[in-house]
């Protein structure tokens, strides 16, 4: 069996999750505390990937990133980045595609904290950033864990977006979900089964660990 698609899948998922974690915290904290009128619009945009067919997202990204078009050619000329049919493109697409899975748990966690925690910290002269890092985030660890794991699992399970924007290039953009499709098309059921089984087991174990952790299982029985 060729391990490359699996390695590529997990590499993509790790990179995507790390980027998402970093960018989702400011987005979520802004959404949870703002009274701005554009908040519903931004919330809608963040949640769109939940309901939109991945092919729609992939199609527009394919158009946008294509060197034939303004944005794509600008990226190509000025930054030397070509996002279609490349690993970089997959990362950008996955970040957008999995954004709600990271932002929503963090936003919900922050909103569930009593506002007096934040206010108490302010009256002690602490800035918002200090408050966020020392008080707010440490008190929503389960939400952070949920966000990380859901985004990771969701990226592992991507198919449509990846196929549209990445194509099917071995070693570059051929992730496990596409490899499975490939093997089935070639009637190579044994190989498809090994990929599938591995993805199935890995995602099962990850999700199980999250539920056990957030449910306090390790705290109760771990010692």
């Amino acid at each position: 069996m060729d391990w490359q698609p699996l390695m590529l899948t997990f590499k993509l998922a790790v990179v995507t999750t790390v980027i998402l974690f970093v960018i989702s915290i400011p987005i979520a904290s802004w959404l949870s505390s703002t009274k701005s009128k554009i908040r519903p619009v931004l919330e809608t945009l963040v949640s769109m990937p939940l309901v939109l067919p991945p092919t729609v997202l992939g199609f527009y990204m394919l158009l946008a990133f294509s060197p034939e078009n303004a944005f794509g050619s600008w990226l190509d000329e000025w930054l030397g980045i070509r996002l279609i049919f490349s690993f970089g493109g997959l990362v950008v697409a996955s970040v957008i595609y999995s954004l709600p899975f990271m932002v929503q748990p963090i936003q919900a966690g922050l909103s569930s904290l009593p506002s007096t925690l934040k206010e108490a910290s302010f009256t002690m002269g602490k800035s918002y950033t200090t408050t966020l890092l020392k008080i707010l985030l440490p008190n929503i660890k389960p939400s952070l864990l949920t966000g990380i794991v859901l985004s990771f699992a969701h990226t592992v399970g991507e198919f449509g977006v990846v196929l549209m924007i990445g194509g099917n290039m071995p070693g570059k953009t051929k992730v496990a979900s596409i490899a499975i499709y490939d093997e089935v098309e070639a009637l190579n059921y044994a190989a498809a089964n090994s990929y599938s089984l591995i993805l199935f087991s890995v995602t099962f174990i990850i999700l199980l660990l999250v539920y056990l952790t957030n449910g306090g299982f390790f705290k109760r029985y771990g010692q």
């Binding site: 007096t116 108490a120 910290s121 302010f122 009256t123 602490k126 008080i135 008190n139």
Partner: peptide, 20 residues
């Protein structure tokens, strides 16, 4: 002035102790 700049000690009704 921001709350950070006002020299006030505030005891909240729900105490607002940091759980972590």
């Amino acid at each position: 002035l921001k709350p950070q700049q006002r020299k006030v000690g505030y005891v909240f009704q729900d105490y607002a102790l940091f759980p972590n």
